[in-house]
Deep mutational scan, measured.
Amino acid sequence: KWEEIAERLREEFNINPEEAREAVEKAGGNEEEARRIVKK
């Protein structure tokens, strides 16, 4: 599940997989929260 979210974030925000994974981890697997983290 987290991998899927990280993949979507990576494609959408054009970030590297590591950044995407970190955002999802910080968000506890919550996609909306992960998006907010990435946008900062």
Rank of each mutant, 00 (worst) to 15 (best):
E7P: 01
R21Y: 13
E3L: 13
K1F: 12
E11M: 15
E25T: 11
R8M: 07
I15F: 02
E31F: 13
E32M: 09
N14A: 07
E33P: 01
E12K: 04
K1A: 15
R10A: 12
E33L: 13
G28D: 11
N16F: 07
E4W: 14
R10K: 07
I37Q: 07
G29L: 03
R35Q: 05
E25G: 07
N30V: 09
I15M: 07
F13G: 03
V38M: 07
I37S: 06
A6G: 04
G28M: 14
E11W: 15
E12A: 06
R36F: 05
N16M: 10
I15D: 02
E7A: 13
E31S: 04
E32T: 10
R8A: 06
E7M: 15
K40A: 15
E18Y: 11
E33G: 06
E32D: 10
E19Q: 13
N30K: 06
K39H: 09
A6E: 09
I37N: 07
R8L: 08
E18M: 10
R21K: 11
G28P: 00
E31M: 10
W2I: 06
E25N: 09
A23I: 11
R36Q: 10
E32W: 13
K40N: 14
E22P: 01
V24D: 00
E12L: 10
K1T: 15
E19S: 10
E22K: 08
R36S: 09
P17G: 12
F13S: 03
L9K: 00
L9R: 00
I15T: 05
R8P: 00
I5L: 13
A20Y: 02
W2A: 06
A6H: 03
V24P: 00
E19I: 12
F13W: 04
K39D: 09
R36E: 10
R21I: 11
E4F: 10
L9N: 01
K26L: 10
K26T: 06
R21H: 08
I15P: 03
K1P: 11
N14L: 08
E11L: 14
E32K: 08
E7L: 15
A20M: 02
E3V: 11
I37Y: 09
N14R: 06
A23M: 06
P17M: 15
V24L: 10
A6I: 15
L9D: 01
K40V: 13
E12V: 05
I5A: 04
L9Y: 00
K40M: 15
E4L: 14
G29D: 01
E18L: 11
E11P: 03
R21E: 07
W2F: 08
E31T: 04
V24C: 05
R10S: 10
E4Q: 13
E7V: 10
G28K: 12
E25H: 13
P17C: 13
N14M: 10
R10V: 12
G29S: 02
V24E: 01
N14T: 06
E25V: 13
E31D: 03
R35K: 08
G28R: 12
A34V: 02
I5G: 01
R21N: 08
K39Y: 11
R10G: 07
E22R: 14
E31Y: 15
A6V: 13
K40L: 15
A23K: 01
K26W: 08
E18D: 12
A6N: 02
A20I: 06
E33Q: 09
A27F: 01
K1V: 14
A34L: 02
K39L: 15
P17V: 13
E3G: 11
I15S: 03
I37D: 03
N30W: 05
E12Q: 07
E32L: 09
A34I: 01
G28T: 06
R35E: 03
K40E: 15
I5W: 02
E33R: 07
E4K: 11
E4A: 15
E18T: 10
E32P: 08
V38P: 02
E32S: 11
A34E: 00
E7I: 12
G29V: 01
E25M: 14
K40W: 08
E12D: 09
A20Q: 01
A20F: 02
E33D: 08
V24H: 00
R36A: 09
I37F: 08
A6D: 01
A34T: 01
W2Y: 08
E22N: 13
V24Q: 01
F13V: 03
I5N: 01
N16H: 10
G29A: 02
W2S: 05
G29I: 01
I5P: 00
A27L: 01
I37T: 06
W2G: 04
R21M: 14
E22G: 09
E11G: 09
I15Q: 03
E32V: 09
E7T: 13
A34G: 02
E3P: 07
E18P: 04
A27Q: 02
A27S: 08
E31G: 03
E18A: 08
N16R: 10
E12Y: 08
R8K: 10
N14K: 12
I37R: 07
I5F: 04
E18W: 15
K1W: 12
N16K: 11
P17T: 08
G28S: 10
K26G: 05
A6W: 09
K39Q: 15
R35F: 05
N30R: 06
A27V: 04
E33A: 10
N14W: 06
F13D: 03
R21A: 10
N14S: 12
V38Q: 03
A34K: 00
E18F: 11
F13H: 04
E22L: 15
E19R: 07
N16A: 11
L9M: 05
E4Y: 10
E4N: 09
R8W: 05
E33F: 06
I37V: 07
